[in-house]
């Protein structure tokens, strides 16, 4: 049995905007075991990125705040930590890579500089040691000619190369947890395949757990052991990947899979989900999916369903089950 690495309990992160309070993360619980890959799927605006940012304490301040909940990482509650303490955790024990590698690399510094800095800060290496280590890391993420690439600027690298640099930087200190927020959404399919393979290989090698945030169910199916499906700030279904794709239980998960054009299936009409994603300022009462759900019963609009274990290791928040 693997040890629990990260345990998020009933987390609520709210953002105050001039339109009202956005309940971006509204009572989320999830667990990541050591060396495990958890896929977090959901559509844009469901709060999945805000959940990731909450773990690292990087949610926008002062608009955002964690109003409730615990984030236990290796037995320590990150919610209670000061900014200074969190800074020592970020990049060292938990790292993150983002969707857009162009904007997450500083355009005025050579790409190797970021890695050198992380190593000097967290590992206490001298500059020349850090440089040597950075070259090794760039070679590890399969960047050709790392000695030369290291001194190039972000705009001189392609999107795929930049994402490799980001990965090298994120893994420089051998973190226990890597949070990858849509790491390949901005990339082409052939490059996406390279990057996903790379993350999978490095994860094996370094024994890192990964929280992979994506909207692409295909990526989840291929790269994750467990999945959590998020809708409008809440988790509606949690399971291991085989059970989820074999028997999706929540109507939203099923609808999502039905709405996907598939290469293997017949090319018939897609099962579209009516309506659009709700506004998180005033989410629907009861089950948040009920206005778009085909199978709703009166209870759905009255009472919020709780996440319950329906089968072994398969949790669903739905009144139908």
């Amino acid at each position: 049995m693997k040890k629990v690495l990260l345990q998020v309990e009933n987390l609520r992160t709210y953002l105050t905007t001039h339109r009202g309070v956005v309940r971006a993360v509204d009572g989320v619980s999830l667990t990541i075991l050591e060396e495990e890959t958890l896929g977090l799927v959901g559509e844009s605006g469901c709060g999945k990125s805000m959940l990731a940012l909450s773990i690292l304490g990087l949610y926008p301040k002062p608009q955002g705040r964690i109003v409730e909940g615990k984030i236990e990482f290796e037995g320590e509650d990150l919610v209670q930590k000061s900014e200074e303490e969190l800074r020592r955790i970020r990049g060292k024990r938990i790292s993150m890579i983002f969707q857009e590698p162009m904007t997450s690399l500083d355009p005025v510094f050579p790409v190797g500089e970021g890695i050198v800095e992380v190593l000097m800060l967290h590992q206490g290496l001298t500059r020349s040691e850090a440089r040597r280590e950075a070259i090794r890391l760039l070679r590890m993420v399969r960047i050709p000619e790392p000695e030369r690439r290291m001194y190039q600027y972000p705009h001189q690298l392609s999107g795929g190369m930049r994402q490799r640099v980001m990965i090298a930087q994120a893994l420089a200190c051998r973190p226990k947890l890597l949070i990858a927020d849509e790491p390949t959404t901005a990339l082409d399919v052939t490059v996406q395949a390279q990057i996903l393979e790379l993350i999978a290989a490095l994860k094996e090698e370094m024994k890192t757990a990964v929280l992979l945030i994506t909207h692409d169910l295909g990526i989840v199916a291929e790269h994750c052991q467990k999945v959590a499906v998020m809708y409008a700030g809440t988790i509606v279904e949690k399971s291991d990947v085989f059970s989820l794709f074999a028997r999706p239980l929540h109507p939203y998960t099923r609808a999502l899979l039905g709405a996907l054009p598939r290469l293997d299936g017949k090319r018939s009409r897609l099962e579209a989900i009516p309506g659009s994603v709700p506004d998180l300022i005033a989410p629907p009462l009861g089950c948040r999916f009920h206005p778009r759900c085909r199978e709703r019963i009166p209870r759905c609009s009255e009472e919020e369903p709780r996440l319950r274990e329906v089968e072994r290791g398969h949790e669903v928040a739905c009144h139908l089950l």
Binding site: G160, H223, L263, D264
Partner: peptide, 23 residues
Amino acid sequence: LFESIPVPNPTYKRKRMVLEGDP
């Protein structure tokens, strides 16, 4: 290109032909 698409089926086993480099 076809081999690069992630398939939403965890039991699917691909014959990988990952392309090297960028266009």
